[in-house]
Design a binder for these strands. Structure first.
Lengths: 239, 239
DNA sequence: CGAGCTGTTGACATTGCTCAAATTTCGTGG
DNA sequence: CCACGAAATTTGAGCAATGTCAACAGCTCG
């Protein structure tokens, strides 16, 4: 699908200079004049829907940045129960490592393109360019805050609140301007259930209930429209 | 309680050089020769049991390191429901900040002593001593991994598994050598419930059930003894 | 010694889960 | 473009784990 096989220079979306997600990625901390250094360290890779990127516990050789598509992170229990710990979007960093191994599994939700860097490359970058470490720390801080918000959701919210919080979070996260009163859900109901600590049946029933109340429209299972954003926000607060 | 009021030099446990928790704290990244710089930036403060250290959303002026005692972190919903996002022990860093405000509330569980540093001081430290930022990033990484483990617990484990995981985690965390087959629980049942996403009644019943099964002994509500560590580990895995 | 707090136990209610079946969606091939 | 089949989603009925409400017990501190 990619045309990297011929001798032509990298396609423009593989040039750091013109990278769509640069401003969200750790790359934002590299000044433009060092783009060539950065480019020398990365390569791009495509993943098919559902494809495993790495599994929890795999020895970590690479870290990634998402160029296109969404990725799910998850942890498993020995009996197969799964907790999805996050959905990542273009620009997000991928590859939390503890003791040399990945701390979670990662799979492509739809078609995904990753910008890959050897761990050694990242380490060189970190030691040569201090702002990169600062950037990584800032991103970790945000991730940690998000993780705690998710703990609040998992531990203390009802199914209805979980779904509403999830929808609102996605809405804000995907469209920070808040212009578009709709949300795409490329992931399956199973993914959503495993993210919110529910079963697929409860997720489905809750969507139906919200639709019947008129809080959301569901033209199809992967698209939600908010007829009245404020009503949704009120509902998420209240109960 | 502290004797900082007279002209005598700082008590030895306030000297960075002899600090009990230095090796666990961010201070481990400061070389010994710069101890004086570090000491100039910090002051110590005592907190009574239950005392609020800061609340979520407070404008953040200080960051802290725990010298003595345990601290609970928590987030609240508007109606008062609470999620305890972590219990901190001596050496832990305290003060996750997003947009200039604390991302969670923090309260002393028992008597607590904190080593406090102005945010401006930390920032100076970060820019003057690169290893400190590296250290902070490493600690964030560990925290993030712990947060995801907690999501797995909150979203996918039964009450029984939650309690067992909690006890085993504490045992390992507080005594990494694994020598002592017992755990102190200075926090209340309410704290434990809010940490595990349960009610106090369920926590209490689960402790009782584990005692009746012989998996744990409960000489009093704040102390747990494991007659057979391995049996507990098996039980935590199994169901 | 008594009040009040914390923890435990009991009875019952409820949310969300399990198992099962119907329906819709979507990719594939004709 | 349409038909088919597999997979995903929705819906239904019953149930179980955990929550709620209430009473009791054990400790601690005045």
């Amino acid at each position: 699908m990619t045309d990297t096989s011929n001798a032509v220079p990298k396609p423009s979306h593989h040039r750091c200079e013109t990278c769509d997600v640069r401003h969200r990625a750790i790359c934002a901390a590299v000044d433009a004049e060092h783009n060539d250094r950065l480019e020398a360290l990365v390569s791009h890779h495509d993943y098919a829907p559902g494809q495993v990127i790495f599994e929890e516990g795999d020895p970590a050789e690479y870290v990634f940045n998402i160029s296109q598509g969404e990725v799910r992170l998850y942890k498993l229990l020995p009996d197969g129960r799964r907790q999805v710990t996050g959905f990542l979007i273009p620009g997000d960093f991928l590859g939390l490592i503890t003791d040399g191994a990945y701390a979670y599994g990662a799979e492509a939700i739809g078609p995904v393109e990753l910008c890959c860097m050897r761990l050694s490359g990242l380490e060189r970058l970190l030691s040569d360019m201090p702002p990169v470490r600062e950037r990584l720390l800032d991103m970790s801080r945000d991730e940690l805050a998000a993780a705690q918000e998710q703990m609040l959701l998992l531990g203390r919210k009802s199914a209805r609140e979980k779904i509403l919080s999830f929808l609102l979070y996605r809405q804000r996260h995907l469209d920070p301007t808040g212009r578009d009163a709709s949300v795409d859900l490329p992931m399956s109901r199973t993914d959503i259930a495993d993210y919110l600590g529910l079963t697929i049946e409860t997720v489905s029933r809750t969507f139906t209930a919200l639709r019947d109340e008129g809080l959301i429209e569901l033209p199809n299972p992967h698209h939600v429209i908010f007829p009245d954003m404020d009503a949704v926000r009120d509902a998420a607060e209240a109960a």
